[in-house]
Amino acid sequence: MGAAVFGAGGGGDPLIGSLMAGKAIADHGPARLVDLDELDDDDLILPAAMVGAPTVMGEKFLSGDEGSRIRERIENELGRKVAAYSSAELGGVNGVIPVTWAAIDGLPIADCDLMGRAFPELQMTTAVLAGVDINPVVMTDERGNIVSFKTCTPEWAEALVRTVVGAMGGEASMCLYPMTVAQAKEAAVPRSMSRAIEVGRLLLEADDDPVGALCQAVDGFALVTGKVVDVDRQTTEGFAKGSAVIEGVGPDSDRLLRMEFQNENAVLIEDGKVLASVPDIITAVDIHTARPIVTEQLRYGQRVSIVALPCDPVWRSEKALALAGPQAFGYDISYVPVEEIHD
């Protein structure tokens, strides 16, 4: 659930993710979360993810041995052992997938990820910014099919992965950007898993003003409290694109905001003014519990607070913004950090 806060509305439904992780932990004992400093610089880390339609994941969830299969394949290809799994992106499912696989394999989880949030495309990673190779990319399905490939660019990986996902039945398990701990120290967002766990715990425990407590914990801004009055969703080029209109209630009465999403929430606009945009994290949360609501579950009448929080600073360089800033999502706006807009 904490991971889903950073998921910015994407990254999958936390429920099925937590069920799979819960069962793996019940059977195999908990996976240990370790700081990068606790591992040797030369150790190999395997960033893990599931890709596919959340609807398919809710019907055909994992067999459980996908992680081991991917790991063995990578170990064969690279000729060395994997020391730890890590998360490739923080999100409802992908934040906990490495927990499932690490518990089953008895390996630790490196406390980092490659986005510090969730993004819709495979090249939108801090690994690309640091020049870490995405290859080899290994994908598998529940039957035991394995596809391993090398691509010229991460953008090509995105195209190939979508094709394989289609062939595998709308969902696949994968690893990408295998890297050493030394590389991860440069190329990953550190301590993002422990931060997500802290936020998840806070949401479970908070009873008085959870939204306020959440904002305080993540340096976030509750930009509006309102009701979802319209959700427009369409699938274009493999993305769930669309927007939600939020009408303010209570102290925010008479305000009308539009939140645009492309799998993840991308921009929040009021009267033509941008209140927050990618790569900063925009998440809709329940008004009473502050629990995150993924875009697939947004619907008319929900009472939500829209919370925006600063992305990891690594995303704010010119190079990073070209990769995952508003213009990379097709918006003709310049990025202003959320804390500068709402200081």
Binding site: A53, R162, G166, Q234
Partner: peptide, 8 residues
């Protein structure tokens, strides 16, 4: 309802 991540 439409689904994300599908080529078709």
């Amino acid at each position: 309802l439409t689904m994300a991540y599908m080529t078709d």
